[in-house]
Amino acid sequence: MSDIFDQLKEVVMAILPLAVVIIILQYTLIGLPPDLFFRFIAGVVMVGLGLFLFLVGVHIGLLPIGELIGSTLPKTNKIWLILSVGFVLGVVVTIAEPDVRVLASQIDDVSGGEIPNLVLVYSVALGVGFFVMTAMARTVFNIPLKWLLAGGYSIVGLLALFTPATFIPISFDAGGVTTGPMTVPFILALGVGVASVLRGKSSTSDGFGLVALASIGPILAVMVLGVIYG
């Protein structure tokens, strides 16, 4: 029960400052129409309730199952299975990420439908899946994280030379939205679970850095779309 109250407190402290600032601006500078302002208040309440329920669900469901999957996979002693499951989970959890959907719909509107919504979502998901698989390989083979990050961002820099300028900011935004409330808890728990078995409980920090790698995938995926559609 105390965990639920902690989640409620966390949500209130996250949303309250924004609500207070908007209310102050409403009565000092902005002066929104009353119906729009009341819709904002109603929206804040609904967002707070939804975020609270989401965080409770993450802590009682997503985190435990992610860590359980991560700790079970290495016991099979099948590297191909660890990598394959990492790829599949990276893809499906990104497709479920609400931030990715929001970005895709906005880009679809701005581009006038040139970049279809689903094309962007699935491209980003495949990019995340590939780099989650790479992160699993990093844990299995004990590859230094710095070399993977250096190599990944070197490819990003090289591909940027051939990508239309309008796609470059979109690609980095795509890398940002994948680090959302659905993807991060599950992927981190998966990485920590794998590392806890392969490296021991004292080295579970090897499971971190996975999100940093996963965010490279969407950048590359959108840049490739830019080369194709540009």
Rank of each mutant, 00 (worst) to 15 (best):
V184L: 12
S202V: 13
L213E: 03
G180L: 15
V222L: 11
V192R: 04
V192T: 13
I228M: 15
G226M: 15
S202H: 14
M223I: 14
T183M: 02
V227D: 11
G217Q: 03
T183N: 05
L210G: 03
G191E: 03
R199N: 13
M223R: 03
F186E: 01
V197Q: 09
S196W: 11
A212W: 01
G191F: 08
L213S: 03
S196F: 13
L213Q: 01
A214E: 00
G209I: 12
T204F: 14
V222S: 05
L210F: 04
L190H: 06
S202D: 15
A212Q: 06
F208D: 06
T183R: 01
F186L: 15
L210D: 00
A189T: 10
L213I: 08
L188T: 14
V211S: 02
S205T: 12
L190V: 08
D206Q: 11
F186D: 09
V224L: 14
G226W: 14
F186A: 10
V194D: 03
V197S: 06
A212E: 07
A195V: 06
L213K: 00
P218F: 08
T179Q: 08
I228V: 14
L190M: 11
G207P: 04
V184H: 06
G207I: 10
G193C: 11
V211C: 02
V222I: 14
A195H: 02
G209W: 10
F186T: 12
F208G: 05
L213N: 04
T183G: 04
V211D: 05
I219M: 07
K201G: 15
I187R: 00
L198Y: 05
V197G: 08
F208W: 06
G207A: 09
G217H: 06
G200T: 08
G180Q: 12
I228Q: 09
I216T: 05
L190R: 02
A195M: 04
V197P: 04
V224C: 07
G217I: 11
V227P: 11
L210S: 06
V197I: 14
I228K: 08
G207E: 03
G217F: 07
I219S: 05
P185G: 01
V222K: 04
M223F: 10
L190N: 02
L225G: 02
L225E: 01
I216G: 00
T204G: 12
S203F: 15
G209A: 09
S215W: 04
T179A: 14
S215I: 09
S196L: 10
V184S: 07
R199Y: 12
S205L: 13
V227N: 11
L213R: 02
L210P: 00
A195L: 06
M223Q: 14
I216S: 01
A214R: 03
S202A: 14
G193Y: 08
